[in-house]
């Protein structure tokens, strides 16, 4: 037994050393924490005192939240989150990013796994039953990706005849939207868990089009020059909001104030230009925040 205990101590020591080594090579510092004064008992005060925050975002969405080789998620959503966290007086390197896929976003907020979520999160009424949204901070829209030489599909109405097949991602809002345009879901709609599989089905000819938010499709158009194109204009409006707890009105107004400030001082536009803007997507004018 004594030997075992020694082994445990040695392992613990090795782990501590390893952790120290990992922590040592920090290059980017997000500024220092500042004690700001917020209303007593508010979420902002609590977070500022703790000097730590958990933010939910996507890890697989190019341009918005993509965790690459750097090990940190990068994208527009991440930059927006940083703007808010800075305003809370917390250095951005204190943010712990948590992956919140579409499926678990509401549950992550309700169960206190994260403090807020910025994850291409479309504001809708069904979701508002369980959580609340600040923002919107961006307005995307659904569009259709087709092969560059395809002239038969010019908009969602092309699916009404029943002979064109379309692919989207399972459980996404665009997948639900397109259901209202197709004649028969069983024969026309394919859903995969990632967009890459949809693109491969498009290449293989199993489907004629891929549909989702324009910014995501533009990423594929940009990556494969001349191979694909967007068919027509956006046919829905997808306002992206920031998810917070349903009863935390103060925190929501604080985020809304921060967004409005970021619209004015240009940090919102800069965040876009550094990330999703590189795909050639239009930022448009700043969407008015909705204080409901």
């Amino acid at each position: 037994m004594r030997f075992t205990r020694a082994a445990v101590v040695a392992t613990a020591a090795a782990l501590t050393l390893g952790l120290t080594a990992c922590g040592g090579d920090k290059t980017e510092s997000g500024g220092t924490g500042t004690a700001k004064s917020f209303a007593a008992g508010s979420t902002m005060e609590k977070l500022n005192k703790a000097q730590a925050i958990k933010v939910g975002t996507k890890f697989d969405q190019p341009g918005f939240g993509l965790k690459g080789l750097s090990g940190k998620p990068e994208g527009f959503d991440v930059e927006v989150a940083k703007i808010i966290v800075k305003e809370l007086g917390i250095p951005t390197d204190k943010i712990e990013f948590v992956e919140t896929t579409s499926k678990i976003r509401e549950d992550a907020i309700v169960n206190n796994n994260v403090d807020f979520i910025v994850a291409t999160y479309t504001i809708n009424d069904k979701r508002k039953e369980r959580i609340a949204f600040a923002g919107p901070y961006y307005e995307a829209g659904q569009n259709i990706l087709v092969k560059a030489d395809d002239a038969t599909i010019t908009g969602p109405d092309a699916f009404k005849a029943g002979d064109k097949k379309v692919c989207s991602v399972t459980g996404s809002t665009p997948a639900e939207n397109i259901k209202t345009y197709v004649k028969d879901v069983a024969t026309q709609l394919v859903l995969f868990d990632t967009y890459d599989k949809c693109i491969s089905a498009l290449d293989g000819g199993q489907v004629n089009a891929v549909t989702t938010d324009n910014v995501i499709l533009l990423g594929y158009v940009a990556k494969n020059e001349g191979k694909y194109k967007l068919a027509g204009d956006n046919f829905t409006k997808e306002p992206y909001g920031i998810g917070v707890k349903i009863d935390d009105k103060d925190f929501r107004s604080f985020i809304n104030d921060t967004l409005e400030k970021a619209y004015k001082d240009g940090s919102w536009k800069k965040a876009w230009d550094d990330t999703a803007g590189k795909f050639g997507a239009e930022l448009g004018s700043a969407p008015a925040v909705n204080r409901y």
Partner: peptide, 9 residues
Amino acid sequence: ADQLTSAEG
């Protein structure tokens, strides 16, 4: 289940 949880909330 996927559709009900992630798209319809």
